[in-house]
Design a protein around this nucleic acid. Structure first.
Lengths: 334, 334
DNA sequence: TTGAAAGCGGTACCAT
DNA sequence: ATGGTACCGCTTTCAA
């Protein structure tokens, strides 16, 4: 069995109270007592039991991350950002998956509550109206990352998808493109889907371009969605877009893969713009032009905000983080 | 304040012992008592306090993951695998980063012990001799994933890098290549570096090919390492390999990126073989031929083994998991 | 079938 | 400067 402060107290010939003081450097003891206690503690390989501390202090210094099961590559960056900041603040991080389509969401959240996490970061979790009540009942602060709740009832950290899509589309237009496809977007997704469609549409209109609904290809942000859309494009000569705005880097790569098979050159024959700036974007050839989301920083910011909120007991303010257009090799001027 | 079993007991008019029995379905109470208790619990939004349970049960049902800070894309898959299995077994997962070059390793491990995790999975953690003693002192089972300890003093789950490198090199030879570069490998890395060099060397010798040490390009598995090596190759005409075996997919992409810049076509002008089969490998064009490591399954297996070890109290057996050569578009026959 | 009570490993208040 | 001790929320033994 692992040593406890009782063991240390007994061996050092002091009380547990004094041991506790020494271990926590609270002062109020003679140096030689401290030396002795510390030596015994080390000798015994003592490690404090956080369960006991949490219990008595009514604080676990733990935050929870809940994310979908799907492993898109950028989650690692987000987790890194969260963990780094949490670590700096002396918090630990516990992780659960909400499953595909949130099937495990309730369980995940219960798990978190039983673990008495002090706050939760929900990454890419799309909440329904009904979830909101359950979450309120949890009585644990929940911050959304790259997501948004119905009616913005929960604080969030995300980029402005509308603005990003608007800027991306405008950039393509500035490059001389007049027929631009929007690929892989989920129109049922009110947080990342509809705003991007709206931004795309608005940019087109602002430039006086005609909106062709056939150029909007629904999908689910995956590589396969890009493949499907591009296959359709190739099979539909009357469409002939000169540029594709894909709603994720993976989708963009799906588009490019089909082009590659068909012998189309990127960007000479078709411009492709991605979204995310995930690690892969800079590693492919030609390197992918894309809308950057600062995932690592978003993770950091989310952890920061949550922990600050915990410590100050102030409500957490939502924050829009800046996107950035990254010009690399897949968009060319017409 | 959150409701406790005391609150439930008081309101239900029974003792905390009975509440505990009901909540844990231990039997030994009248159904109507159970109904009442459950109703009150629900009413109060009761959630059990795992700190208290852990404390009294001397078991946290938590496992820890320690990994390097660098966020290579496949960590997400590994974490997914671990978390899925842990979840199935009723364990939760807590996560820390050991920092770059393990600078935070000791702290991470202490953290884990204070959290009283029942076991730890160390992902890609290269341990030095000295760490071993500290880890032994921890008195917590530690399983290595994609790593190995000096003298194999710790159980591990990984692929056989020697065999994989041997098979990969042989495959290149079978495709008619006679001059094959090995790129991005760290000769100081005894777990993933030296075995791959050895496998590469052995395959060459088995085929009766001459080993040219200049064709081994040291590196650190990164994209940049691939770029550097390929730049050198292009600048050194007497080398002229017809194939490159990169020690990671990212390194392979670095190689390809330089080729792309230089106007070399893959695989017509140079064959490139990667290592990992990370998600990107199948998304790039041409799709990357590579040595597959089953990351998700490795995560599952590691969690399985660790938890089984915990429950049976048996020592954990190391396991070599199978790699697989994935032929896609970046290797051609000569 | 039920309750009283003794801890689990700490913290922190109140005395001394 | 130090010790005694109640208590955090829960489980579990023992008795009734």
């Amino acid at each position: 069995m692992r040593a406890t402060i009782k063991d240390i107290a007994k061996i050092s010939g002091v009380s547990t109270a004094t041991v506790s003081r020494v271990l926590n450097e609270l002062g109020g003891y003679r140096p030689e007592v401290a030396t002795k206690v510390l030596a015994v503690a080390k000798e015994l390989g003592y490690r404090r039991n956080d369960s006991a501390v949490s219990l008595v202090k009514q604080a676990t210094r733990t935050i929870g991350i809940v994310m979908p099961t799907v492993a898109t590559s950028f989650y690692a960056q987000i987790i890194n950002g969260i963990e780094d900041r949490a670590y700096q603040a002396g918090y630990s991080v516990i992780l659960t998956h909400a499953g595909v389509n949130n099937v495990r969401l309730q369980e995940s959240l219960n798990f978190m509550v039983e673990r008495r996490v002090e706050g939760i970061i929900g990454v890419s979790i799309n909440l329904a109206q009904i979830d909101l009540q359950a979450i309120a009942a949890l009585a644990v602060p929940l911050l959304l990352l790259s997501a948004q709740a119905p009616g913005n009832r929960l604080p969030y950290v995300k980029v402005d998808d509308y603005a990003a899509a608007y800027a991306a589309t405008t950039d393509l237009i500035d490059h001389g493109h007049r027929t631009i496809a929007l690929v892989g977007v989920d129109p049922a997704d009110s947080v990342a889907g509809r705003p991007r469609i709206a931004g795309y549409t608005a940019a087109l209109q602002a430039a006086g371009l005609r909106l062709d609904r056939n150029l909007i290809f629904p999908g689910d942000y995956t590589f396969e969605a890009g493949q499907r859309a591009m296959t359709t494009i190739l099979a539909t000569p009357e469409l002939r877009p000169t540029a594709v705005f894909a709603v994720s880097d993976e989708t963009a790569l799906g588009v490019i893969a089909v082009c590659y098979q068909a012998g189309l050159r990127i960007p000479q024959d078709l411009s492709v713009l991605g979204y995310d700036n995930s690690a892969i974007a800079s590693m492919v050839s030609p390197a992918l032009s894309t809308v950057a989301q600062p995932f690592y920083e978003m993770g950091q910011l989310a952890a920061d905000k949550l922990i600050t909120g915990l410590q100050t007991n102030q409500p957490i303010q939502s924050q829009i983080v800046p996107f950035k257009l990254i010009h690399r090799g897949t968009v060319s001027s017409l």
